[in-house]
């Protein structure tokens, strides 16, 4: 859904609600989303609150794993969790709560998809020649600087590695991974291909040598670097590139992690992180279509209001996101 259309829908929802009750007591609804959802949730929060003036939505963004840990490891009172990798919810939350009152949750609802693109600006080296056909050759040039977020911290970071490894095979360009990313590390990061599976094992410290590759903690720092000319291209979610008015190159569906029908292709790439940052989740990541999902923790302090918010978000995302949509998520299917 594009931004003006989204705003119109939100306004309509707010007006149709006939919001009149302005009682003094407001329920605070704690919502913990993945960072890439913060931008669309700004408008959604405002529209929901205008429809429900008795509810104060508090949004606190984190990386997806950290978002879930607020509920599981840190035992904070959270009403809604929304993550950029649906598989994390069953992995981390279909587990008993220490208090013995059942699992942290037993369900999630997929509500959006995304895909990895190559974001850039008009100032980027090669900006006047990069296309969907030659992007990997441009990014391979020694003088072209490439950025991605830290795979230890951000799903988009390990997805950047997956996309590049998939591209090496899809584009039939041996050495592509090393030229774009791997060669900037000492020793070089390599893709080990065994029995049709590409395995990338990361070092404990993700610190590239030289200027060819830049790694930052999160997407916003890459955007800042792009703007300042510190890098030429960044691996980003399409929604992020779109939300921030960047130029971007769409990647083929076979490698961009955005199409459910290519799930079998994506699963052929694995990334093993350099260390186990959290005891609550392992260090291997397997390529999957990028699916966003929400749940309400079993011990959410305001489950009724949380359900209203989840329904509202689903309605806002029902026409697809990013705007031109990719594959279709099973319509509002609840997974258990």
């Amino acid at each position: 859904m594009n931004r003006p259309a989204a705003l119109a829908v939100l306004l309509l929802l707010a007006v149709s609600a006939g919001c009149t009750d302005t009682g003094p007591e407001r329920t605070t609804l704690m919502v913990i989303p993945a960072g890439s959802l913060l931008y669309p949730l700004e408008d959604i929060e405002a529209a929901f609150e205008s429809q429900h003036p008795d509810i104060d939505v508090r949004i606190e963004g984190h990386g997806s794993i950290q978002a879930i840990r607020q509920v599981t490891d840190l035992r904070r009172e959270v009403d809604v969790v929304a993550v950029a990798d649906a598989s994390l919810i069953p992995d981390m939350m279909y587990r008993p709560m220490p208090e013995g009152d059942g699992n942290y949750t037993d369900w999630y609802i997929a509500f959006a998809e995304n895909e990895v693109v190559i974001a850039y600006t008009g100032k980027s080296i090669g900006a006047d020649e990069i296309t969907q056909d030659n992007w990997y050759r441009i990014l391979s040039r020694p003088d072209v600087r490439v950025g991605f977020s830290n795979p230890m911290l951000d799903a988009c970071g390990y997805r950047a590695l997956m996309v590049t490894a998939l591209a090496e095979e899809y584009c039939e360009e041996p050495g592509l991974f090393e030229a774009i990313i791997g060669g900037s590390f000492d020793p070089p990061l390599q893709v080990d291909r065994t029995d049709g599976v590409a395995e990338i094992t990361l070092p404990e410290l993700m610190r590239p040598a030289g200027d060819k590759v830049a790694i930052r903690d999160g997407s916003i720092y890459l955007l800042s670097l792009l703007d300042a000319g510190g890098i030429d291209y960044a691996f980003e979610y399409r929604s992020v590139a779109e939300d921030h008015g960047l130029l971007w190159i769409d990647l083929p569906p076979e490698i961009n992690l955005g199409f459910a029908e290519h799930a079998d292709d994506y699963q052929k790439v694995h990334v093993t992180l350099g260390f186990r940052r959290f005891q609550s989740i392992g260090s291997e990541r397997i390529g999957l279509p990028i699916v966003y999902a929400m749940t309400i923790p079993a011990d959410a302090p305001h489950p009724d209001e949380a359900r209203m918010f989840v329904d509202f978000v689903l309605e806002c995302f029902q026409d697809g996101w990013p705007k031109s949509g990719t594959a279709t998520v099973a319509d509002k299917q609840i997974f258990r």
């Binding site: 490891d73 840190l74 404990e204 260390f275 940052r277 959290f278 005891q279």
Partner: peptide, 9 residues
């Protein structure tokens, strides 16, 4: 204590 680990050079 909460199971978080970070590695420093």
């Amino acid at each position: 204590e909460d199971g978080y680990l970070w590695v420093f050079g």
